[in-house]
Every structure is written in C-alpha cells, then in structure tokens.
Amino acid sequence: MMEKAKAFAEEAHRGQKRKSSNEDYIVHPIRVAEILKEAGYRDAVICAGYLHDVAEDTEYSLDDIEKEFGVTVKNLVASHTEDKSKSWQERKQHTIDTVASGSEEIKALIIADKLDNLRSLKKEMDIHGEVVWNFFNAGYDSQKWYNESIAKAIETGHSKNGAPLFFFDYRKLVKQTFD
C-alpha cells in the first residue's frame, strides 16, 4: 500500500515545484512519509504522509484517495487538508486547533509536514537569506505566529515523555528559525 501511495502522489504532483526552490514537489511528501516511517507509525499514517497534499494541491479529491486507499487514509489526509475558500488566517488557525485536539496520528502527520517545511525553509534561508519570505502568502511575522502556535499546540494532550522525537525536533527548529 505504501508503494502505491508513493506512486499515486508522484503522479498527482507531477510537474509541481516547491514554493521557495526549484525542487520537485514530490520530494516533500516523500520526506514526510519517511519521517513517519522512521518514527514507527503504521502503514495508513505513512500513506497519508505521501498523500497529505494531494486533495489540497492537485486535481485529485479526497474521494479519489478513499477509492484507492480506504476511509482510514482518506480521513487522515482530510484532517490535514486546508479549505482554500477560507482566508490564510482561518486555514492556519484550523490546523493549530487540529494539532491541539487531534489524535496522535493526526498530530504526527501535521508535525512531520511542518518539520519538513521548516527544514526546507531553513535551507533556503541559508542560501538566499530573508528574500525567501517573499515566496509565501504570509510574511515572517505571520509564519512566526503560525509555527510557534503549532509548537505550543503539540503539548496539548501529550506528555513530554510520550511524544515522538521529531515533535521535539520541530519545536527546536521553530525556536532556531524565529528567535
């Protein structure tokens, strides 16, 4: 199922590039899935890692994901799919709220995505400097609010001893990027 999810995501994201680089978009979902796999999550969560941006950023829908991968994977992807009809602030607040109230698997999917995004951002900042912020719909201050809010929301419903290590990596990277 994981190879099928990877191939589906590769086809769905074919030709897409990352916002702040010339990197093929598919490398992002692959890295998200790898983070989840290394942390020991079950196959459905890893598949959702590959597919997390498909319904949001391609011609494929959540129904397509359900048809190919079942309701469990679809529900995981749906938990992290933004409603593009809403404002940036509303979409990001929804993600923060989902991290605060979601199951550990939903938290893990979102944090793996945000961790990879921040790693990519940090790499691009090291190369290009502050100009990187121009590639985003919201600038530095908004991105700082969003990532710091996600980092704080991780703690809701989680003991420090029970959190996967990459949650701590994310919080540390937020601090390094925005302090």
Rank of each mutant, 00 (worst) to 15 (best):
V45G: 02
R31V: 09
F135E: 10
F8R: 02
A112P: 04
G139S: 11
N22D: 15
V73A: 01
L165N: 13
H28E: 08
H128E: 09
E34W: 00
L36Q: 02
E10P: 05
F136E: 10
A9Y: 08
R14I: 09
N134M: 09
E11L: 15
K122D: 14
L115I: 05
F168S: 11
S21I: 07
G70V: 11
G40A: 09
E105R: 06
E82N: 14
A55Y: 04
R171K: 15
T177H: 05
V132T: 12
I111Q: 01
W88F: 14
K84I: 08
E155R: 09
K175R: 08
A78I: 05
T72C: 10
Y170T: 03
Q93N: 11
E38N: 14
K19R: 12
L118K: 03
K172I: 14
E3C: 06
K4I: 15
A33N: 07
S61N: 10
F168H: 11
E82W: 11
N22Y: 13
M1Q: 13
T58S: 09
V131Y: 08
G139Q: 12
S159K: 13
I65S: 05
A55G: 09
Y170E: 03
F8W: 06
S21T: 10
E124R: 11
T72D: 15
G102F: 06
